[in-house]
């Protein structure tokens, strides 16, 4: 079981959290301007990194806030937990959809 450090509450067991998938995917500002390919990329295509992965977690049974985690998907070791990066472009591994 992972030990996750909620930036608001501190370290808690994984079972208190729910997982939100890849972080940093910004909803396109004008969906109508996108081609089907770009829309599919935003909706469905994922980095699914083998190695360091930037992802969203929600402290569902605690403060109920969303935050970001950087975690190694092979060793499962968590490198860092932090408040959601705002704006989403402030970190480099962006989804291509935005």
């Amino acid at each position: 079981m992972l030990l996750i450090a909620c930036p608001y509450c501190g370290e808690r067991a994984e079972t208190e959290f729910s997982y939100g998938g890849e972080a940093g995917i910004a909803r396109p500002k004008d969906p109508h301007a996108l081609s089907d390919e770009q829309w599919a990329d935003y909706l469905f295509m994922r980095k699914n990194s083998r190695g360091m992965h930037r992802e969203l977690w929600n402290h569902a049974q605690g403060c109920r806030r969303w935050f970001e985690v950087e975690r190694d998907t092979v060793s499962y070791v968590i490198k860092e937990c932090y408040e959601i990066a705002t704006p989403a472009t402030s970190r480099d591994n962006q989804s291509r959809a935005d």
Binding site: M1, T15, Y19, R50, E55, V74, Y76
Partner: peptide
Amino acid sequence: DAYNGYGQRGSFQ
């Protein structure tokens, strides 16, 4: 397991 993983192992819960 809910999270993305490549580790060929999962959680006890």
